[in-house]
Amino acid sequence: MKTTVITLLVCLCLGTAMAQNQDSMKTFDPAFAHTVYFWFKDPDNTADRNLFETSLKKFLDNSAYAKTNFIGKPPKATREVVDGSFTYSLIVTFESAEAQEGYQNEQPHLTFIEECKHLWEKVIVYDSFGVAK
């Protein structure tokens, strides 16, 4: 059940990311999706949020591997199946699993982690291969 709910949430976020950012994003690549959820130690701290958003955007703007991205915050949950406990979500697409591996080791990603790792108490990552239509 939990896996199904998470899968539905990821699909919803991916669809929303495409609809909301279509003009400013490159073409969505369904080959590989990297979904990350962050839980902050102090989620109401405005300075922490500003640092995180600035560092994350700088990283994504300078990534040689990330094709599309979506940075999100949880909406007020109105249904029991919606988990709104995280502080931020990030969905990044890649043309392949190999590209995602390159992203893990590139300097902009490592700099982002170094600048922001003190902000979060928990991070969960879900990686997915696209399913052929």
Rank of each mutant, 00 (worst) to 15 (best):
P43L: 02
M25K: 07
F129Y: 13
E53A: 04
S63C: 04
D29S: 10
D48N: 10
T35P: 08
V123A: 05
L8I: 06
R79V: 14
E53W: 01
P43G: 03
Y65W: 07
Q100I: 04
W39G: 07
A99D: 06
N45S: 10
D127L: 05
N69L: 05
D48G: 06
R49D: 04
V123F: 01
S96H: 04
L14R: 09
Y103Q: 04
K58E: 09
G84E: 10
V10Q: 13
S128Y: 15
N21M: 06
K57E: 11
A99H: 07
L90N: 01
S96C: 06
K41A: 08
F70Q: 07
F70H: 11
L110K: 12
F94C: 00
F52T: 01
L110P: 04
A66S: 10
G84Q: 07
F129C: 08
T35I: 13
D29T: 07
L12V: 11
D61G: 09
S128R: 13
C13E: 15
A66C: 09
L12F: 14
S89F: 04
C13Q: 10
S96K: 01
T46W: 05
T68F: 02
C11I: 07
W120P: 00
A19V: 09
A77M: 11
A132P: 08
T93A: 02
E106F: 03
L8K: 14
E114P: 00
Y103M: 02
V82T: 08
I91M: 09
D42C: 11
L8V: 10
N69W: 14
R49W: 00
F70P: 05
N21K: 07
F112E: 01
N21V: 05
Q104W: 03
H34F: 06
V10L: 12
S55V: 03
E101M: 09
N50I: 12
V123M: 05
K57A: 06
V131T: 09
F70S: 09
T16E: 15
I6L: 14
T3N: 15
Q20H: 12
A97R: 04
K67Q: 11
F52N: 01
E121D: 10
A97P: 08
D42G: 08
L56Q: 02
L14W: 05
I124D: 14
F59W: 11
F52I: 02
